[in-house]
Amino acid sequence: GTEIELESKNGQREHYTATSEDEARKIIEKAVRRGIKRIELRGASEQLIRDMQEIAKQIGLQYRTDGSL
C-alpha cells in the first residue's frame, strides 16, 4: 500500500495507509480540499507521484516522497 502522512496548517498530523492508488488519490484530494500544509508519500506509484506533483504545483503545497520510484 501507499503510506500517506498529512500535516494540516495547525500542525496536526494524520497517517493513512491506502490499499489502492484510487484510495490514495481520494485521501489526497480530501486533504487538499480541507487545506493541508504538507504531504508525504511512501510507496506511491510513479503515476501517483506525478499526479501529486501536479496538485502541489497548482496549490503551492509542500510534498515529499521517499524517492522509491
Score class of each variant (00 low, 15 high):
1 G>H: 12
1 G>C: 14
1 G>N: 13
1 G>Y: 13
1 G>S: 12
1 G>L: 13
2 T>Q: 04
2 T>G: 05
3 E>R: 08
3 E>P: 02
3 E>I: 09
4 I>S: 01
4 I>H: 00
4 I>Q: 01
4 I>W: 01
4 I>M: 03
4 I>G: 00
5 E>D: 13
5 E>M: 14
5 E>R: 13
6 L>E: 01
6 L>I: 15
6 L>W: 10
6 L>K: 01
6 L>Q: 02
6 L>R: 00
6 L>C: 08
7 E>V: 10
7 E>M: 07
7 E>R: 05
7 E>K: 04
7 E>T: 11
7 E>W: 08
8 S>C: 14
8 S>F: 14
8 S>D: 14
9 K>D: 13
9 K>G: 10
9 K>V: 11
9 K>T: 13
9 K>Q: 13
10 N>C: 14
10 N>P: 03
10 N>Y: 07
10 N>T: 12
10 N>F: 08
10 N>W: 08
10 N>G: 09
11 G>E: 02
11 G>W: 00
12 Q>F: 11
12 Q>L: 11
12 Q>G: 12
12 Q>S: 10
13 R>T: 11
14 E>G: 03
14 E>C: 15
14 E>N: 06
15 H>R: 11
15 H>W: 13
15 H>G: 03
15 H>A: 06
15 H>K: 12
15 H>F: 13
16 Y>S: 02
16 Y>L: 08
17 T>Q: 08
17 T>A: 07
17 T>N: 08
17 T>C: 14
17 T>G: 04
17 T>R: 09
18 A>S: 09
18 A>M: 07
19 T>I: 13
19 T>M: 13
19 T>F: 12
20 S>A: 04
20 S>L: 03
20 S>V: 03
21 E>P: 07
21 E>L: 11
21 E>M: 08
21 E>G: 05
22 D>H: 06
22 D>C: 11
23 E>W: 04
23 E>A: 06
23 E>N: 05
23 E>C: 09
24 A>V: 08
24 A>K: 00
24 A>W: 02
24 A>H: 00
24 A>G: 02
24 A>D: 00
25 R>P: 00
25 R>H: 05
25 R>I: 09
25 R>V: 04
26 K>F: 05
26 K>E: 14
27 I>Y: 08
27 I>V: 05
28 I>L: 13
28 I>T: 01
28 I>H: 00
28 I>E: 00
28 I>Y: 01
30 K>W: 09
30 K>E: 14
30 K>P: 01
30 K>R: 11
31 A>D: 00
31 A>N: 04
31 A>L: 07
31 A>F: 05
32 V>R: 02
32 V>Q: 02
33 R>I: 13
33 R>N: 12
34 R>Y: 03
34 R>F: 03
34 R>K: 13
34 R>E: 14
35 G>C: 10
35 G>Q: 05
35 G>T: 02
36 I>N: 01
36 I>Q: 01
36 I>V: 12
36 I>Y: 05
36 I>S: 03
36 I>W: 01
36 I>R: 00
37 K>W: 05
37 K>Y: 04
37 K>G: 06
38 R>L: 06
38 R>I: 06
39 I>H: 00
39 I>N: 00
39 I>Q: 00
39 I>R: 00
39 I>V: 07
40 E>H: 12
40 E>T: 14
40 E>D: 09
40 E>P: 00
41 L>F: 05
41 L>P: 00
41 L>R: 00
42 R>L: 08
42 R>C: 09
42 R>T: 07
43 G>F: 10
43 G>Y: 08
43 G>T: 05
44 A>L: 02
44 A>K: 01
44 A>D: 03
45 S>A: 02
45 S>D: 04
45 S>M: 04
46 E>G: 04
46 E>R: 06
46 E>S: 11
46 E>P: 09
46 E>W: 03
47 Q>S: 12
47 Q>T: 09
47 Q>M: 07
47 Q>N: 09
47 Q>R: 09
48 L>N: 01
48 L>W: 02
48 L>Y: 01
48 L>I: 05
48 L>D: 00
49 I>F: 06
49 I>V: 09
49 I>N: 09
49 I>S: 09
50 R>W: 07
50 R>T: 09
50 R>G: 04
50 R>E: 07
50 R>A: 08
51 D>V: 14
51 D>N: 06
51 D>F: 13
51 D>G: 04
51 D>H: 14
51 D>Y: 15
52 M>A: 05
52 M>H: 00
52 M>G: 00
52 M>V: 15
53 Q>L: 11
53 Q>I: 15
54 E>I: 09
54 E>W: 05
55 I>A: 02
55 I>Y: 11
56 A>K: 02
56 A>T: 03
56 A>L: 04
56 A>H: 03
56 A>R: 02
57 K>Y: 08
57 K>A: 12
57 K>R: 12
58 Q>K: 14
58 Q>N: 08
58 Q>Y: 03
59 I>C: 15
59 I>S: 15
60 G>Q: 05
60 G>A: 03
61 L>Y: 05
61 L>F: 06
61 L>K: 04
61 L>R: 02
62 Q>M: 07
62 Q>E: 15
62 Q>Y: 08
62 Q>D: 15
62 Q>H: 15
62 Q>S: 05
63 Y>I: 15
63 Y>W: 15
63 Y>S: 15
63 Y>N: 15
63 Y>H: 15
63 Y>L: 15
64 R>G: 15
64 R>C: 15
64 R>I: 15
64 R>Q: 15
64 R>S: 15
65 T>Q: 06
65 T>I: 09
65 T>Y: 05
65 T>K: 06
65 T>W: 04
66 D>N: 05
66 D>Y: 01
66 D>P: 02
67 G>S: 06
67 G>Y: 01
67 G>H: 04
67 G>I: 11
67 G>E: 11
67 G>T: 09
67 G>Q: 05
68 S>Q: 08
68 S>G: 10
68 S>L: 06
68 S>N: 07
68 S>C: 15
69 L>M: 10
69 L>I: 10
69 L>F: 15
